[in-house]
Amino acid sequence: MTLNMLGAYGDWAAASLPDPPRLSFRQPIFQNVESWRPVARARYRELLLGPAASPPPIAVVQHRLEFDGLAIEHLHWQLPYGPPTEALILKPAKATGKLPGVVALHDHGGNKYFGLRKITRMSKDPHPLMIQHQNHYYGGLAWANELARRGYVVLVHDTFTFGSRRMRLADLPGKIRNNLVEENPESPEEIQKYNQFAGAHEHLIAKSLFSAGMTWPGVFVSDDQRALDYLASRPDVDATRLGCAGLSGGGLRTVMLTGADERIRCSCCAGMMTTWADYVLQKSYTHTWMCYVPGLPKELDYPEILGLGAPNPILVLNNRQDELFTLSEMEHADRILREVYRKAGASDHYKANFYDGPHKFDAPMQKDAFAWFDRWLKG
């Protein structure tokens, strides 16, 4: 027995994972990707157990501005559940006609107080904590702005439990929030306290959603699909050229959204690729409760959720020293996706890059991601 998350139970639990899983395109019974994908995608959507379908959101523009060569719209919309969603649209200030659209998905980062502000910039004086965040994970760049500058309409929105969609302390019983209250919510000290509370609150959110017959991924995928509804509806967006991308929790959302929605034509998952076996044995302790869909590992391995987009192009960006994953399992996930795309007759539509360094989506990685979108959404 090797040391693992489940001790003496680890080998038994890992052995329960079928290889390949029942609905894997690697199964010999599946030969045609176009006939396999609807079946596998339907089962994936079923297991997500998301909230009831809702109509596309009606977005209200709060204000418009220009910043650093970009036209920016600050929006909000109301979903049938929770507080209003805040969102930004970013595009080149002088752009005309229809442009490709990308849903830029913010990360988790142990920071639920913030959402869209993690990957955008609207002024020369963003919150100091967001400067630190972008320096740490993104090479000092607001990558959604950088992508928009290249000729895209980029939508960034807060998703379930983050930013404008976060749990409000006043809505929770005192014993759940340890009697924490909001007094000066933008202060770094209060943000730190909120994020500590939010991290400790995750298991209660997951258990409560399970008890309601839903999963956490089901809720954030629904949030992200409603954002995609809005992006696709805009007159300045070519709805046949839509993509999504994100780091870490945003990479998770990229995997899940690509798997769920056929409108996504090109994807880039950064810093969020491994196998279910890696979660079982080594790394579930490093990850949020947002990752897990009961029953899904019997049907598809984790990388195969992203592979539901085949033969549409997908790019996976990995960091060799990423503390959130085991390198051998990142490489295993790469082999799985290469096999899926080879069998689909679309080997050139899949690419994985490995970079030196820890968990990040820095300037060189962004350069590769943007070139990927340029190739497949603008070509």
Rank of each mutant, 00 (worst) to 15 (best):
H332A: 15
H349Q: 13
L377T: 03
A352E: 07
V60I: 14
Q134S: 05
V219R: 07
V33Y: 01
S248W: 01
F325N: 03
M330I: 08
M256R: 06
D158M: 13
K298T: 08
G246F: 05
S187D: 07
S16H: 08
T159D: 00
G10H: 05
G218I: 09
A144P: 00
S187E: 03
G307S: 11
C266N: 04
N4F: 08
V181Y: 00
S222Q: 09
Y341L: 11
S208G: 12
E331S: 09
N32W: 01
T2A: 06
G163Q: 02
A270N: 09
E299Q: 15
H201M: 15
Y279G: 04
L88Q: 06
I305W: 05
F114K: 04
F354Q: 04
H136N: 11
Y152G: 02
T275G: 05
T288A: 07
I305C: 05
P18R: 11
R41T: 01
G7E: 04
V293C: 08
M214C: 08
D356V: 00
S233V: 09
S123N: 14
I119R: 13
T215Y: 02
V293G: 03
S208T: 15
L3K: 14
D68W: 05
G140C: 06
P51M: 12
A13R: 12
I336P: 01
L155F: 12
G69C: 04
P235R: 14
V154T: 03
P188H: 09
L231W: 06
E323T: 05
V33R: 09
K94H: 12
I58Q: 15
P57E: 07
G50N: 10
M273F: 06
N135I: 01
R64Q: 13
P38Q: 12
F25W: 01
G163V: 10
I58W: 02
R22P: 00
A333S: 15
H127Y: 08
T2I: 04
A239H: 09
V156K: 07
N145A: 12
Y138K: 09
H203C: 07
S35D: 03
R117S: 10
P28W: 08
P20R: 10
E86T: 15
L242W: 06
L116D: 00
S267K: 13
K98P: 00
L315R: 11
G115Y: 01
W276Y: 14
A148I: 09
L105I: 13
W12S: 07
L129Q: 14
L116P: 00
